[in-house]
Amino acid sequence: MKVSFWGVRGSIPVADRGMARYGGETACVAVDLEEGARVVLDAGSGIRGLGAALVGQHRPIHILLSHLHLDHINGLLFFAPFFDPGAEVTVWGPPATGAPLRRRLARYLSAPLSPVEIRDLPARVRFRIAPSEPFDLEGAKVRCALVSHRGPTLGYRITDGDNVLCYLPDHEPALGQPLDRGPDEWVSGLHLAREADLLIHDGQYTEREYPLTRGWGHSRAGDAVDFAARARAKRLALFHHDPTHDDGALDLMRVEATDRWIAAGGEGSGLSLAAEGTSVAL
């Protein structure tokens, strides 16, 4: 399994030079499975670059959306395979009361917000609610569950051969409860992250910022480390970087998070801040 970061920023894309090293595109992660299939996690602005790299390839593409906040879908209209009649794309997303997934996404992919209607996409595009029971996807096993964030939001666990990836890009498991006590079953997302080879987890805020943002559905980096340690994840990539954090600020967060990770028993090399354009081989 190869995990490639095409967008790691949260909330809104940023183009500042001082943020270029970690990257300014919003959430999008490509997962190349052992049997050659490709799964895409979220469709933030980072999916534009990924789509350009996929032009001419006609393997089935599965896009697993964690939720429909704009920073996770704002690249959809710029995903090149959607405009390729030979492409086959399945978009999976969270359950919600009311409108089906296609109609919920069409609120964005329609006038007056978009010049192209969702029904006009040339590719063969299907929209499916991700089932609450584990399901097979191109030879991998996918398990998902609603997790603590604002609005229906899925976390994903992808098991491919011996490798496990967990993706919790927008997640505040410490909201209203300490992470160091209580049964595992009462901690949002923990079963998805358990002993994952790589956990990609929301670490948007610093300790100083968090009192002002508590309840917005995002974690401070320290909580993400504690969550990963409790889940016994082997590696942690902090994700969903705040759009106000430049490279220097993120470097500092990495140092502080690494200290905490080591104090919790992890190896220093096991913690990173996800950076656009980088890959992890599992």
Partner: peptide, 10 residues
């Protein structure tokens, strides 16, 4: 790895 038991409904 073992997925373990699921979480309670959110």
């Amino acid at each position: 790895t073992d997925d373990g038991p699921p979480q309670q409904p959110l």
